[in-house]
Amino acid sequence: MALKTQHKRPDIIIENGIQYTSKVMLDLNDLKKVYPTPNGDYVVLENLNLQIMKEEFVTIIGHSGCGKTTMLSMIAGLNPISGGSISVLSNPIKGPGPDRGVIFQSPSLMPWLTTLENVMLGVRQVFPHAKKKEREDICKYYLSKVGLDGSFHKKASELSQGMQQRVGIARAFAIKPKVLLLDEPFGMLDSLTRGELQDVLIEIWNKEKITAVMITHDVDEAIFLADRVVMMTSGPSAKIGDILDIDFQRPRSRKSIIEHDDYYKYRKHLIDFLEH
């Protein structure tokens, strides 16, 4: 399989004779991360190049400790980069910001706030120009989209993990980020709830088409959600090992996908990579 992202980012893409100045939403260029330790530097990531296009959903799969989460938190701006660059729409990132929404592995809601207030926290931040009613509508819209229209005024601490993560999804979409970063958001849930939330996520995503980068260790989840699955090699000095294009049409239904001829082919490819 050709590693088509290993070359440098072109400034102009010509596709079907049309010039796109920046079809690239997120650009990781020669990214490097080093943690100093008493026994010399520990290189987590090195020479990592990846370009993610507008409206693309990319999942990243790899073994735990391979530096996936480090990479994602660097994109989020929560972890300083040691070398190379990260840019969003050709602008290098400076620290964290609401243009890159993050859904964390734990829902990390403020437990003392209601679901609505949790979503509102971010909405107020990025829609200071909106009316109070409008802001509330935004929150309610996304909360109802994740199936929580009966629980606007429930305290986050009263909800189950799965319900809390739904709020996490609503909160991330409600601030209309340019890029959505998901760090194993369903890793702590059982597989039925995980499936439900994948459906919730992909349903909103189908409407909004926000460029998304998601870390997962679940092969089926990676295939179901993604346009491309990026496989990372194990650390130290982790980099991109392989990329798999998933050519299922959207919107996808889980049922039709698992019966598709290619499904188990993709699955085998990913499991092969992970096993070796």
Binding site: A76, G77, L78, G95, P96, G97, P98, R100, G101, V102, F104, S106, S108, M110, P111, W112, L113, L121, G122, Q125, V126, I175
Partner: peptide, 26 residues
Amino acid sequence: DKDILNVAKVLKLGPIQKVFKVILPS
């Protein structure tokens, strides 16, 4: 909780908001 602080960072809450909305209640 570090995750909660990260949320505050991603949302770019100002220092006063951070103290009163996130740190004190938690």
